[in-house]
Write a protein that binds this DNA or RNA. Structure first.
Lengths: 249, 249
DNA sequence: GCCTATCTATCGAACGCTCGTTAGATTTTT
DNA sequence: AAAAATCTAACGAGCGTTCGATAGATAGGC
């Protein structure tokens, strides 16, 4: 425990998705909630908070946040039920700590592409898909929590999750729009396409167990999504399917 | 009340996705759980069960199944808390009633394509996409419940949801495989493609509020998904994106 | 036609238990 | 010894579920 607590910086300011760790997020959370966490010594607070949050994510992701009791969390984190309240002032605050941190790191990473890809829409789109997948893989329990639980959050917290999702969608939309402008994407690309990319990216962590069972690597998944998206952006008029086709009902 | 209760048939045996109603599902549920529902008169039981289930879906879909108390359900359905137990013997049974019925109707509809589409893989694929979207649109709260809540279900019930999903994926896989055999789909179509169709279809009901707000019709959404999927199945070698592309981290 | 016995469907109070949260005592660190 | 961090014990509220009571319909005997 001897290490002095210098570099208490915002954590992971760079766009390097794969480098963001749980510890980074915990330090950032502590800085953000300095007033609700009553433990003043960061040498104590950071590792304790990390144990609490890791246990909270683990319990929430199997059974739901509602179903996780603070007694469960106490047992899993090693602190007493009362002791937990030194790190958050209500169960909802605990939820918000995680949620805000996740949405924030998505924005930080995706808004900061390396200069090498910004000139080419195809490379930029590939990078965004890969960066998103890398980030979610790295912080899997955080994303599972933030976006699978969101539906059951109180209205204010649900708003945060929805806004984050729309920001991501907008970032994809902007890249595609630039590709259309510069002529490398077809002009009549569906305006729905940015919305459809999101579920493809989410499936990687939502159905993570399935893909692990099938030995699908992130590289394979990423390449496949890139292909599907680019096929929809690049395809020539001539070979597009004709007409709306068969309907049910 | 005066109507005699004839046609108590399995309900919606045909593959006509758009014609399946909540009432159909309730009659089917009653037939399936004849031993756990203690109310013997169907003239009473069907409408009561429908009120109970509609209220249960409504409450569960805003706040989660766990968070819905039977006192909430009692208030919303008009029966007393004790009275509810004439229609199910535990809260988990109530969950199972809905879940099994949803997974069953998906299988019934998607496994029964009209003869007009079975000969042409492109038409078949279009039909499956459209039929799935039509079905989920029609029974929106049922699907929201079955597949958004599934993560927090007890193991046995979660298994049901996962199996249903894999069945759907397999049905898509078979159509694509037939298309490859007959030569109208490219031979090197990604084996991941069937898995990626599912999240595209799910987004239609998971993010339903978003698409409604943007005035996206089912026809538009369906056509877009069909285009994206077929672009990935049909695209020629020549214009496929080259190599795995940029990586993050 | 009426009284009685039986059955069906529903009610609402009560049970044992767990929940999130708090306050005061206790331990650990400085 | 003072301060910081944590623990223990308790509170009221709410949970899923049970169960005896009951209103209304139904059927049979006279």
């Amino acid at each position: 425990m001897g290490r002095p607590s210098v570099e208490q910086q915002p954590a992971a300011g760079a766009g390097d998705a794969a480098s963001v760790t749980t510890g980074d997020l915990c330090r950032s959370i502590l800085a953000r909630h300095r007033d609700t966490v009553s433990v003043r010594n960061p040498e104590l607070a950071v590792p304790r908070l990390q144990r609490i949050l890791e246990a909270a994510l683990d319990l929430s992701n199997s059974g739901g946040f509602q179903a996780m009791s603070l007694r469960d969390l106490s047992r899993a984190s090693g602190l007493s039920t009362g002791g937990l309240y030194a790190y958050f002032d209500s169960k909802t605050t605990l939820l918000k700590m995680i949620l805000v941190e996740v949405t924030d790191v998505v924005e930080r990473v995706l808004s900061d592409p390396p200069e090498t890809v910004t000139t080419d829409p195809v490379a930029h789109l590939r990078w965004m898909i890969d960066a998103h997948l890398a980030l979610t893989e790295n912080l899997l329990p955080w994303f599972t929590f933030a976006f699978m639980e969101a539906k059951n959050f109180p209205p204010a917290e649900r708003r945060i999750a929805i806004d984050s999702e729309e920001l991501t969608e907008r970032l994809f939309g902007e890249v595609i729009a630039r590709g259309v402008e510069t002529g490398c994407f077809r002009a009549d690309a569906s305006p729905l396409l940015p919305a459809l990319i999101k579920p493809l990216l989410q499936d990687w962590y939502v159905k993570r167990a399935k893909y692990r069972r099938r030995n699908v690597t992130r590289e394979t998944y990423s390449a496949t999504v890139q292909e599907v998206v680019l096929a929809a952006c690049l395809a020539e008029e001539g070979e597009r399917p004709t007409g709306p086709g068969a309907r049910a009902g």
